[in-house]
């Protein structure tokens, strides 16, 4: 129940951030920050993979509707949601994954958390931009888009994860 409220809040916060702020930034074609990735990324590690997949689907569809991208977001977030367990295993290690909990810097240490965020964002961006372009003609642009957007997204996701883990000073 507690998790439910907490992740419901996270869902709404990253959704609003993405739709109202980052979708409107329009910096250039190379950088389009994805902050909504953080939602699937920060789901508890012990969560059944079917729920992760379904939540990824919901987030992707909402993003497609708001960005008018016709399925690209859905495909990318389904992909990352499905391979999340695998990414967790190779970036964090099976031991820590088995312990469960929300992936965070305190729990995993900065190196593992960074490795996890980078892999996650990179995978998402690779799927997103290669599907959006759907051609090899502009492959250099696509690679540049993937790299630059991944860097910015990793920073954003990291920031969200820190804010999400922050213990409120006033406990109710």
């Amino acid at each position: 129940m507690y998790y439910g409220i907490k992740f419901g809040a996270l869902f709404i916060v990253v959704l609003l951030l993405q739709v109202l702020l980052f979708n409107n930034l329009d910096l250039n074609i190379y950088i389009s920050p994805f902050v909504y990735i953080a939602f699937v990324m920060l789901l508890p590690m012990e969560m059944a993979s079917i729920y992760v997949l379904l939540l990824g689907l919901v987030m992707g569809v909402v993003m497609d509707v708001s960005m008018l991208t016709m399925g690209v977001n859905t495909m990318a977030s389904l992909f990352t949601a499905y391979f999340r367990a695998f990414i967790l295993d190779i970036s964090i290690g099976k031991e820590l994954v088995r312990d469960g909990g929300v992936p965070s810097m305190q729990r995993l240490g900065i190196v593992r958390m960074l490795r996890y965020s980078i892999l996650f964002c990179l995978l998402h961006c690779i799927i997103f931009f290669s599907l959006e372009t759907l051609s090899v003609e502009f492959v250099y642009i696509t690679i540049l888009q993937i790299i630059l957007t991944s860097i910015v997204s990793v920073l954003l996701v990291f920031f969200v994860s820190i804010a999400f883990q922050h213990k409120p000073i006033l406990r109710l």
Binding site: L27, I29, S32
Partner: peptide, 9 residues
């Protein structure tokens, strides 16, 4: 209005 996608609307 977007300008950063490949297909902007």
């Amino acid at each position: 209005n977007t300008i950063s996608r490949q297909k902007n609307y």
